[in-house]
Design a binder for these strands. Sequence first.
DNA 1: CTGTTAGGTGTACGGCATACGCCTACCGAG
DNA 2: CTCGGTAGGCGTATGCCGTACACCTAACAG
Lengths: 205, 205
Amino acid sequence: MPRPRSLTQDQLSAAALAVIDREGLPGLSMRAVAVELGISTMALYRYVQDRGELEALVVELVLSAVDSTPPPPDAGTWQARVTLLVDRLRTTVGAHPGVLPLTFTHRHRSPGVLRWGETVLGVLGEAGLGPEERIVALRALLAYVIGAIQQEHLGALSGAGTTAIAALPAEEYPYLTEAARSARSLTPDREFHGGLALLLAGLGG
Amino acid sequence: MPRPRSLTQDQLSAAALAVIDREGLPGLSMRAVAVELGISTMALYRYVQDRGELEALVVELVLSAVDSTPPPPDAGTWQARVTLLVDRLRTTVGAHPGVLPLTFTHRHRSPGVLRWGETVLGVLGEAGLGPEERIVALRALLAYVIGAIQQEHLGALSGAGTTAIAALPAEEYPYLTEAARSARSLTPDREFHGGLALLLAGLGG
DNA sequence: CTGTTAGGTGTACGGCATACGCCTACCGAG
DNA sequence: CTCGGTAGGCGTATGCCGTACACCTAACAG
């Protein structure tokens, strides 16, 4: 009966994501999103209760992509299938690094991630893990992926931090300086999969 | 010749940490810290260039504790020694959960963490790992610890998220709902060490 | 005692999220 | 076609925030 909405939630979250991708997370403000949509600031509040809800919408938009791709092939070892699923999560989040800090606070609610977890648990179950082993394994995988993605985007191994470490006094930090020197040839990809392989090996493969 | 400073950096960072511990990270503001110290807001700027520098000071205060404890005993397997070092990092950060989000942005500069990394690399070296293996292992350990600490404090397994998952439709998420039900008896401590054991097992133990 | 230097302060500005009340576009009913 | 009510959109105002700037003043060197 009354006036219909002129914007969809998808438009909202897409606009917010566009702002983040363009100006980074600090650039995200109700004003900026409103400008992006061509409406007034306060009109936004007809769609979300507060800024937090807008952030949750963006996170959901980004994370939903993790499940939009086809399911993993049943072929291959379970290690290969878990690796594929983990890679999918990594590339999904990595596509929008600016959103990363928001995912921690708003992760729980995402159906996409829930379905991802369900799939991983399934593969682990088929691999012969018991109920409690499965939980520990899933949480460990999640912890590793979360931490690794963060390290990759907030303190990359090939970045300024590593060169700073390489410049430390070698007498006091012999291992670190040596590590920093040889770390320059280690790509983020090899690093990530190396650590993941450790975890999978520990899982019994 | 001129007027001496009336505050030390330790007092500054301690005051900021006190504010965070008492009112949480959102409660941290230049005004609040100034009140805590009994000085005017602008007087703070005689000690730090901006808010970011104050945050870095707090992070450094918290992380420095990781190395103030005595070195790990040379006895025991290398797995036990790494576990001890990792535990030390976990309890250090866990003592001030409010600071957690700040550590990601300001972590690199901490001498305490640098010395921690040096020690871990040393143990890994004695365990027989080669140079590149050591780096991958250290970074994997760091990634796991970072992610696990975050999961523990921002989305605890025994918290609201898990009960929400337990309430999901069991037909659609059979593994997840079953996992959430049996996860209630899994303490954060057992979860953390379970995942860590996986990683260490993968390292060749 | 006095001049210099740097520590401490008060005021002010622009940006932020957002509570509140007004205007009005839209739709169903008559 | 008209009209009334509902809910969308907007302007204004408030109280936070970080911080630039100009001023006052405590303290030491001479």
